[in-house]
Design a binder for these strands. Structure first.
Lengths: 331, 331
DNA sequence: CGCCCTTATGCTCGCGCTGAGCGGAAGCTA
DNA sequence: TAGCTTCCGCTCAGCGCGAGCATAAGGGCG
């Protein structure tokens, strides 16, 4: 039998449940973060303890404390990943139980998206400025990140290591032939982390600097507590992938919406502009929505028809979602 | 601040690392399982303890004990899911620390796939007979499972619950309009579990019966220890999805292989037959392989050219993988 | 030695999805 | 009523992909 427990290895750890609570409001993607307590600390993901005695399942535990603490009843919840790297919590390095965090993504409707005390809705792209391609390829990619990553590549030991680093950059950031793959959020963040280009690298396990508050974050993005930005990167990548084959986008929409509102929400999370007419056609062809009969006159021009989600679609299509191109070329 | 730790809830748990070690040998998908110790027990996933003192990361811990215990150095490793439902381990229900298991999938090359002592390679489709569509739609779907699930549907309380159950069946098993979605392995297993159609349901937390050894498993599939079959279902679904956009299939291939061998390996995991000529065209078009110049005369007919994986493909294509149709209709 | 069987491999055809654009419809404002 | 804005119906071309036909290149056997 393979399983064995040498004495001293079946040690206890403390499990933590972290929640990436996301929504789209005013056509902008938002995530709920707990404010920093003081100038030396950073915003963090809302998280709560897992109660092995009370909670039947971990997801139940997550829903419980999110409801308790934020008053939000989340609908869609999905487990993301379990984070347990040693470095993630400098405090436990000194001893004490190892901190393991099970990350979840949750989507919540705009209308229910009140701001709980002590928390704020942050724009996703404040954390990941290079991920927002809605107005075309972000300038900071070529003007700032590419040269900075270039220095990191040059800093590698031998030629082989240099080539490996360059390959990683090309794949993650879509330089060279590969197009930009919007789903590779985590790969990009991890590369920037390794290259020392995000504030978390510097402070990880070392002295935390005041430089955090500087506006250098315009291009490195807002740093978060511990590895919470890594968890967010995982979440964004997962969401972007999921939109394509599951109708999760409707979790953030109001009951009735115009097709343009729906498109803006998809664009907000996908971080890419979509062709308007084709979007309409695809949404209709997939049978994702049905007309409510009402119209919205708030658009300025011709009133837009209001639609609602058509839940039956899951019984008709194997993978209903918003079809989108995966890769995009340089521009 | 949202995070708080009421006394008594930051309780310790024991973390376990479980590995789904998969390969393809002789055109059949295999998974490594630890043999049952006696007739009352069941095969189980190889698993090992997570050592919070020794292991820097959980993946490192996994690799360490897999190497220690099985002598296998696995290449591709990916974290799957963290399983923590209360029912999963009847033993800890009576007290003691809650058992949490972090599941991983690993792929290993056929040639390295020796059989470690105490373990055996099991055919995936012994565990999930309804998942193998390589020779067309499995007969047991319509002849056995559909009527059995039908009884479960009829057993629901009111009409609304009946409709909900029927909807779930239609989606998961591709009855009605929806085609069969090969990726929904977990959904199908969970439905069968809830419907009481797999042996695990019966024995979960109750008296374990000798009936486990009966050949009724021809259609319910071989039951495993605790929730290990659920973990395997998660793994198979994940692998099937991943093949389509990451070149993971090459992790189970020998260095040089014919295109038909490659196709058989994909079919084995995907559980679906593929059109030969189109498969060749797609693999070539994606640039996944390159000719070695050698040929294999073991095929009986015209010798087949031997190919090797072309790693550069990841630098050229945003999502290189074996393109396959997602849904398939009734036949 | 040539016929036949088997498997590999190249090529073609046609449908449907998808990207991209044009133009009309329907509201508002001045 | 003209002009602006946004919504929405429609068309067209390219090509990805499913499916089949034809040919190549081996081995076995009479």
């Amino acid at each position: 039998m393979i399983k064995k427990s040498p004495p001293g290895s079946a040690q206890a750890v403390v499990l933590d449940l972290g929640a990436v609570i996301a929504t789209v409001a005013s056509d902008e993607p938002r995530v709920l973060l707990v404010n920093a307590k003081d100038t030396d600390s950073r915003p963090r993901l809302p998280s709560g303890p897992f109660d092995p005695e009370g909670d039947r399942t971990m997801e139940e535990g997550l829903r419980r404390w999110v409801a308790e603490q934020t008053g939000l009843a989340v609908g869609f919840v999905e487990q993301l990943y379990t984070f347990g790297d040693r470095f993630r919590d400098p405090d436990t390095r000194a001893g004490g139980p190892r901190s393991i965090s099970v990350g979840y993504v949750a989507l919540i409707r705009q209308s229910a998206a009140k701001r709980p005390a002590g928390s704020d809705w942050f724009d996703w792209y404040r954390l990941f400025p290079w991920e927002d391609w809605r107005n075309g390829r972000p300038a900071l990619l070529d003007e700032i990140l590419k040269p900075k990553i270039g220095s990191w590549i040059d800093g590698a030991g031998d030629a082989k290591a240099k080539r490996a680093r360059r390959g990683r950059m090309d794949v993650a950031f879509g330089f060279s032939d590969v197009g930009w793959d919007a789903d590779r959020v985590l790969e990009r963040y991890e590369l920037l982390y390794e290259a020392g280009l995000v504030a978390e690298t510097v402070t990880d396990g070392r002295i935390r600097t005041r430089q955090d508050q500087s506006d250098a974050h315009a291009w490195t993005g807002l740093p978060l507590h511990q590895d919470h930005r890594r968890i967010l990167a995982t979440a964004l990548g997962r969401l972007r992938g999921k939109i394509r084959y599951r109708p999760v986008i409707f979790e953030v929409m109001p009951i009735a919406f115009t097709l343009l509102q729906l498109q803006r929400a998809v664009e907000a999370l996908a971080g890419a502009p979509l062709h308007k007419q084709n979007f309409r056609r695809l949404v209709a062809a997939e049978g994702l929505v049905e007309p409510t009969g009402r119209v919205s006159s708030e658009t300025g021009g011709r009133p837009a028809e209001l639609f609602r989600f058509r839940p039956d679609v899951v019984r008709e299509r194997p993978a209903p979602g918003v079809r989108m191109p995966r890769g995009r070329r340089t521009k």
